[in-house]
Simulated assay, not measured.
Amino acid sequence: MNDRPTFTHHKDILRSIERDLIDSYDEELEQEIDDDRLSDASLLKTLGIDENSVDDGDMNRQTYFRELLRLQGELVKLQDWVQHTKEKVVVIFEGRDSAGKGGVIKRITQRLNPRVCRVAALPAPNDRERTQWYFQRYVSHLPAGGEIVLFDRSWYNRAGVERVMGFCNDEQYEEFFRSVPEFERMLVRSGIRLIKYWFSITDEEQEARFMARIHDPLKQWKLSPMDVESRRRWEDYTKAKEVMLERTHIAEAPWWIVQAVEKKKARLNCISHLLDQLPYEAIPHPEVALPPRVYHPDYLRHPVPANMHVPDRY
């Protein structure tokens, strides 16, 4: 019998839901807030973001917004550098369900050009893909020069969910570990900068986040049957993770562990670390001058038929 205490206390569940709601609200604010607004204390207080506003552990929300905006400014510089130098960057995000991978990916891409920085989040392989070389379907998503690709889960599915859920046999599992170090060394030799993150959360925190999703109608879609099953197999996933890190932590592409119990800190720490891994620099751009609008006296703007307009309901 397992005597481990479960995360079922009503107040704790409500607190977790409350933190998720604040985080969702903050996600909307992140797109709107800029340097000027961050220096306007009265506006921030109106938005519920004053110097005493604490949400994530001891993370001050005003500090979070300020640091996130600063780091996103550096990400724009990184994007310009990658585009200018034709660098190829791959960042892998792995971790348990609800560990916060998607949250940090959103914050990285929020202010970037999707043509330069894109996300690869592959579904389960179809019947045809199951007959291919295991890495084949991932190769088509690798970057060309001047691109950054963020893998929201990756070829490491074989070492995790496929192993635990029995979607691969022992021979396929061992072949993966024989192949992946050479595959990644080959990527690095080809000029790809490969960075790998594992988002680490506690047993209790995952249960809290799952319970919050169960009780939040806007987030129930995030819980798949596979996610629910992963709760029962926590220890199996732990063993699989330990084997994966031990056998695929190579000098050319080491693993980096992100402590992710506190979401906002995890995002800032991960983005800051990612920036440290790349020797980017600011790329000078010519000053943009907006040309004057050209007017033609014989131009007539034709009216749009009324039945083509979206109704003004709000």
Rank of each mutant, 00 (worst) to 15 (best):
M211Y: 08
L43T: 00
K106F: 03
L69F: 03
R111L: 02
F151Q: 05
I13V: 04
H273R: 08
E32V: 08
W221G: 13
G166L: 04
E182C: 08
M211S: 08
H141R: 09
H9W: 07
M1N: 03
E32L: 15
S98F: 05
W198K: 00
L29G: 04
V258D: 06
V54Y: 02
D97M: 15
E235V: 13
K263F: 00
Q31P: 02
S272F: 04
K101V: 08
R209T: 04
Y280G: 11
E287F: 05
A144H: 12
R115I: 12
F93Y: 12
V304P: 11
H141G: 06
H84A: 15
I33A: 09
V76F: 13
R130I: 15
E87K: 14
A282D: 14
V164R: 03
Q72E: 02
A121T: 13
E162D: 08
E175W: 00
E32S: 14
K196T: 09
A144V: 09
E204R: 04
E229W: 07
S16A: 11
R66M: 10
V76G: 13
M1P: 02
H141Y: 11
F210V: 08
E182P: 02
D36F: 02
D35Y: 07
P303T: 10
D127M: 13
V82D: 10
D227R: 11
L44E: 01
L268Q: 01
A306I: 07
S272D: 05
V180D: 04
K86Q: 11
F177D: 10
Q110N: 06
E147K: 14
V90R: 01
E252I: 09
D227C: 12
E87F: 15
E28D: 09
Y25R: 04
A121S: 15
R213V: 09
R15Q: 11
L290K: 06
Q259Y: 01
V54C: 02
R66D: 05
V310N: 06
P114V: 15
A124N: 10
E171C: 11
Q259K: 02
T46F: 04
K222I: 08
I49H: 00
I271R: 06
L71K: 00
T238E: 03
E184W: 02
V243M: 03
E235D: 13
M244L: 03
A144D: 13
E27G: 13
N126I: 15
T248V: 02
L44G: 02
G95I: 07
R130H: 14
R267V: 04
L218A: 15
H302N: 07
L290Y: 01
I195F: 03
Y64G: 06
I49P: 01
R37V: 03
G166F: 09
K239H: 07
I105Q: 04
Y134M: 06
L278W: 02
I192P: 03
